[in-house]
Every structure is written in structure tokens, then in C-alpha cells.
Design a protein around this nucleic acid. Structure first.
Lengths: 164, 164
DNA sequence: GCCACCTTGTTTGTATACTAACAATAATAA
DNA sequence: TTATTATTGTTAGTATACAAACAAGGTGGC
């Protein structure tokens, strides 16, 4: 029963890939660990853990910081538009902005020119927090990519950018 | 006010990268769209959309299928162990298994040798569904990677695997 | 002006995901 | 054996995400 457990995946003495190659024909094999969706989910889990560690307990979440980064110059942006800029649908951005507003980092105002719109911007406190948060965000990116060389990291980013 | 909007990101006439290069020093720039976390989130969003399209309205979700794939041989696996094999923490795998059980695809039994454990396995209906689902899962992987050549896809998978 | 359509934002419901705290059971060390 | 520690599973709380249905405000065609 000797076994080596990697952090999460891998439980038995044999690799899933081994099991697949042993018992099944190649055309019928399906190895979860080799699927792009599984690998992306794992990589994201690690990234989010790094994000939370560096931003700290009451720091913003990844999506919260994404919204703040887009508001970083002090601009006024409508809620839905901000959602499009940060890849969040209207229902998601609503919650993100509500939580940032609860924490006093952004404020919402009705748009005088279009009564459907809610304009969102950083509060003075939010604006003041940005330099420190941006510094941490750079450290998060570096830590996430730290297993790779500079060239490998650039290659990864280029490939990921094409999957959209 | 002429503008071209790409699916989600990109709203103004200028690229965020342009804006950063124009007004700020390189050392101070932070371009959300170039960060690995943002790119991974976008790539995952697209992957999940493909997953749902191919699996269909009442097909399993990605995590539900991951659990089923690990149970695919008809084995008995404890709930927490199954979570480790599929990169889900105990609280997450509990919900996934509960929903699979509601749909009659898996069943839970107490472990006779360890009263703490819940053993999970596919039901006959779940076992019967696997070949068709696995076929679809392969199509999902192919569709997700379709913007890339074979070599590029392999390179991406290798790089992602090192981020864990 | 009127009507059809589009956009904006909200609400509800489902499904991940993780943290923290907890209870019950096993395994190990003293 | 007893005491400590570890493992297993649950519950509650927070935060994404998205679909679907909806209301209200703009916009363009006629």
C-alpha cells in the first residue's frame, strides 16, 4: 500500500495514464488528467490560491480586482459596459460591484443622460488603494508563472489568448 | 462614436495595451488582458460554454462528468478520495455527488469497513450512459483546442500541466 | 407619432468552489 | 490502554458564473 500522493490528484499506486494504456484501446481511452478542461481548472485553482495569499484576507477577489483595474484611472463606466470589459455577464458584474460598494471601494450613480444606466467609479479610498493592489497583482502573475521560464510563459499566454 | 466590439472585452476605440503604452511608464503599466489569470478565466468560460453545448441541456456539468469518468469502470470509491482524484475539496464533491445521485447516475453506500466513509459508484443507468458521454467529452476537448494546431495544443497542455 | 427592436439592469434558480468550524471514527504514539 | 492526532464527511457562509425571465428606458424605421 505504498503510495505517493501529489497534492490533489493521484491516489492509487498507478497513474491514470498507465491504467488507460494497460486495459483499453487507445481509441477508447479517456484520461481525465490529459484533458484541457481539467488542466485549466487545476491551473486556475492554483492561481486563485496564490491570488488570495498575496492579496490577503480582506483583499479583493480576482474579479473584484479586475473591475477595479478597469476603473483605475478614475473614470465613470456603466455597470454592463464594465462587465463586458472584464468578461463578466450582467448578473455577475452586479454582485461584484455590490460587494465592492459595500466595502467602500466603488460608488454607483445614475447616469444623467440615460436613465437605464448605472455609472460606477472608484471612491477616493478605492483610488488610493490601487497602487498597492496593482503591485500585488504583478506579484501574483509572477508567482503563478514561476514554474515556467520567461519564454515558456510568453508562449503560454499567446496560446491561451487564442482560445477565446 | 464608431466602435467595434469584440465578444466581451474591448469597448473603446483603443486597445488597453495601447492606453498603457501611451500614458504610463512600462514599469507602472498593468494591462488586465495580458495577465495569466484573466486569460485563463476567459479560456475556461469558452470551454464551459462548449461543454454545455455539446453535452446538452440535461447533460452532466464538467465536474459531474469528471467524477463519473473516475467511476467509469464500475469501481467503488469513497467520496473524499473521489474528490482528490478530481481536484475537488470535500465540500465541493459532496454537492456534485448529491446532484448526480438525484439524477440517478450514482449511488452512495456506507463503507462496511470504515463507518466514516461513504462509498460512491455508478448506477446501472450511469454505467450505461458512459460510452456516449465519453464520446461527447472527446468532442468537447477537440472543439476547445480547435483554434490551435496539433503541435500548439500539445505545447499548451504541457505548459498547463506544469502550473500545478 | 408609433411600433418594433435593442440595451440596460434586476431577480431567481442552479452549480461550482473554497473557508471554517464541527462531529464521528480510525490510527498512532506514549 | 489511553491520549493525541489524522481522516472523513457535513454544515454554513461567501463569491463567482451563467441562464432565463422580466421591466424600463432608448433608438430607428415607417
Amino acid at each position: 500500500m505504498t503510495r505517493i500522493e501529489s497534492p490533489i490528484v493521484e491516489v492509487d499506486g498507478e497513474t491514470p495514464a498507465d491504467a488507460a494504456r494497460r486495459g483499453r484501446k487507445p481509441a477508447e481511452s479517456y484520461v481525465l488528467e490529459e484533458q484541457v478542461g481539467f488542466l485549466m481548472r487545476r491551473a486556475q485553482q492554483r492561481h486563485i490560491a496564490i491570488f488570495q495569499r498575496i492579496m490577503g484576507e480582506d483583499g479583493p477577489t480576482p474579479t473584484q480586482f479586475a473591475a477595479m483595474a478597469k476603473l483605475g484611472g478614475g473614470e465613470d463606466i456603466s455597470q454592463n459596459q464594465l462587465g463586458r470589459m472584464t468578461a463578466m455577464d450582467p448578473a455577475t458584474i452586479k454582485g461584484v460591484i455590490a460587494r465592492l460598494a459595500e466595502r467602500g471601494l466603488v460608488e454607483r450613480r445614475p447616469d444623467p443622460d440615460d436613465q437605464r444606466r448605472v455609472r460606477v467609479r472608484l471612491t477616493p479610498a478605492g483610488l488610493e488603494a490601487m497602487p498597492g493592489l496593482t503591485e500585488k497583482a504583478r506579484a501574483i502573475t509572477a508567482a503563478t508563472l514561476s514554474p515556467l521560464s520567461r519564454e515558456e510563459a510568453e508562449r503560454l499566454l499567446a496560446l491561451l489568448a487564442r482560445l477565446d
